[in-house]
Design a binder for these strands. Structure first.
Lengths: 142, 142
DNA sequence: ATTAACTGTAATATTTATTATTACACTATG
DNA sequence: CATAGTGTAATAATAAATATTACAGTTAAT
């Protein structure tokens, strides 16, 4: 699975646990173990869709903008990874009935698969992810 | 999606349309637009699980070994791509509650997602794929 | 008003994953 | 015994993901 998706989940969960202050891309990137620029890229998508707010300058950062229950994993998937389930078929042989039609058939099947998966992902809101993270907590941030 | 999965589907569909003679990895690879060695690798998995038979030497090749209705896309997924939905999380910060627990939480969620997707994939047998390929046929092999 | 701490984003470099290629042992057929 | 195949490992090439660098813009604090 596309890691923009999981980074978005990670970031939102992080923000969910810091509801009262802004978090920086540096802080989130340390938590997630990736480069801060990547975090900013992912968060810029989430901001564009209104899930978070950001503020530039000293004391700035990112903060959740919605209720935790309003954001589910399907929303996040659609923003970060729509179509990611589709296989990248090489150009196959158009002179073979299989080669000529497989791409179209697979596209249809995987489109359905994505829709189907959506029903599963809709069952998880960030609230639920936060609860799962809290369940067996190993240690805490500062 | 893992392309071993789609190559396996492609190959099996190809074999399904040649039920009376053996097909070579060269033939399949031309249809699918990939290297014959890759086809042989994928088919070697399918053989190990009894979906196809193979024969070495002159006049050898691959041939379907089961009824088309007995093989569904979930079977093929499990053989070629089990776990492929799992994101590859970088090592995150164990001293942050999010970093310390996210991997486990995501693992659980994506495990469920894979199981869920399985129900969808079980609905497609190779027979159905063959039918879809035949539906809007552009042209035929030899 | 200047510095420091941020976001935003593009361009480039690096790393990793996928895929192709080569090589060759083995098997069967004619 | 030559030819047409599979089986599989090792390596090379390519493509994709990720990190890094660079820098413009914003805000707060001194």
């Amino acid at each position: 699975m596309n890691s923009d998706f999981t980074l978005a989940i990670h970031s939102l969960t992080y923000l969910a646990l810091q509801p009262d202050r802004m978090s920086t891309s540096d802080g989130i990137s340390e938590s997630a173990g990736v480069h801060p620029v990547r975090i900013r890229k992912v968060l810029s998508l989430l901001k564009k869709h209104g899930f978070i707010k950001s503020k530039e300058g000293t004391g700035g950062g990112f903060i959740f903008n919605l209720d935790l229950c309003e954001v589910n994993l399907w929303d996040i998937y659609m923003i970060t990874s729509e179509g990611a389930l589709q296989p990248k078929c090489p150009d196959s042989n158009e002179e073979c009935i299989v080669g000529a039609n497989m791409k179209r058939v697979l596209f249809t099947i995987f489109l359905g698969a994505e829709q189907y998966l959506g029903e599963y992902l809709k069952n998880y809101t960030i609230k639920e992810v936060v609860d799962l993270v809290n369940q067996e907590q190993n240690s805490g941030c500062d």
